[in-house]
Amino acid sequence: MIFAKYKDQVEELLSRYPVKRSALLPLLYIAQKEEGYVSESAMKEIGKILGLTPPQVYETVTFYTMFHLKPIGKFHLQVCRSLMCALVGSDDLVGWIHRRLGISPGQTTNDKMFTLSAVECLGSCGTGPMMQVNDDYFEQLNEEKVGRILDDLKTHGTCPLKSGPFMFPEPVR
């Protein structure tokens, strides 16, 4: 049971909406955070909380690309491949990652550390090429930066090059 320890949070979430089903996506996020993916048992549990059948939960989960139904690597590298990033080198970015980790989009490293995906627009078109790693954005990437990010993630689990509150161009001081 995932949600036993999130009782208060679940209650608070349910109080935000007049209809329980609206809390479906928020609960799926909790489940995914807890287990790394959305498991069948989590979907059943969510169904019980919201009064939905398992198919109702499943049909919704499968619409959204951010939910995974199978475990993935510890760090999910998502490279934006849409036109705006492609104009400034997102294909190169995929190549740099491949050179370092030996994986192509859709693959996970043997040690289960990294999964690489090529995804569509992440809303960071002026600061490409870029990638999202779990919750963080990494922008204006070049080969050297990518090397440092991957090293940092491996050794420290995080990297200071991640983006803060976004403003571009930065105001002139």
């Binding site: 089903r21 609206s22 809390a23 996506l25 996020y29 919201l50 959204y64 690309t65 939910f67 627009c121």
Partner: peptide, 27 residues
């Protein structure tokens, strides 16, 4: 005011798909 996160679907920017998604359904 509450913040509600989508989950990766361009179409949910279309206003009625947004409403469907906010209701916990496919967008």
């Amino acid at each position: 005011i509450y913040v509600h996160a989508g989950a990766g679907a361009y179409i949910c920017g279309e206003e009625t798909a947004l409403l469907e998604s906010l209701e916990g359904k496919r967008g």
